[in-house]
Amino acid sequence: MADPAALLEPLIPALRRYAYALLRDHDAADDLVQDTLERALSRWLLRRPDGDLRAWLFTMQRNLFINAYRRRQRQGPHATLDDATMPGSAAQQEAGLEVQDVLAALDQLPEEQKSLLLLIGVEDFSYDDAARILGIPMGTVMSRLSRGRQKLRSILETGRATLLRRVK
């Protein structure tokens, strides 16, 4: 059987990136990744050998985050609305620039939308894989992705988490 280390280690940078985007705290993110790797090792013999290892790891990490980390994150220091909107953003928008902190804006989305945008837009998972990782129906991935991006855009454009009606 293939050595777990050889298969797992190339995937660690992406796990750290996803964890950091979820938690916005470097140490907490590495704690989450460590928990994920420990769980992967303890369940190594139980995984489906023909399954996608990367999707398996991301599923575990996301579940661990939901179960244990989300509460801790809420209690800890958190990006406020003001951080996300950033003074001066209006002026930059007028100049046609968008240099806001997209990551901070992402924090204002519900976890599921946030994970969806990260898994598809950053980690390049297929729409099918993202649906499986998040445990949502395949048919709703596109509409949820659309809503998530729309909401992110409205946060970045107006500095408020109001869901704008899409302009046709």
């Binding site: 280390a5 660690i12 940078p13 950091y20 460590q34 968008e98 997209v102 945008l117 855009r153």
Partner: peptide, 22 residues
């Protein structure tokens, strides 16, 4: 915005993996 998000996270991806995660 998708590109900016990727860009903001690129540095994290490129970081060397800390020893405790080996």
């Amino acid at each position: 915005q998708r590109a900016m998000l990727r860009g903001q996270l690129a540095a994290k991806f490129a970081e060397p993996v800390p020893a405790r995660l080996r």
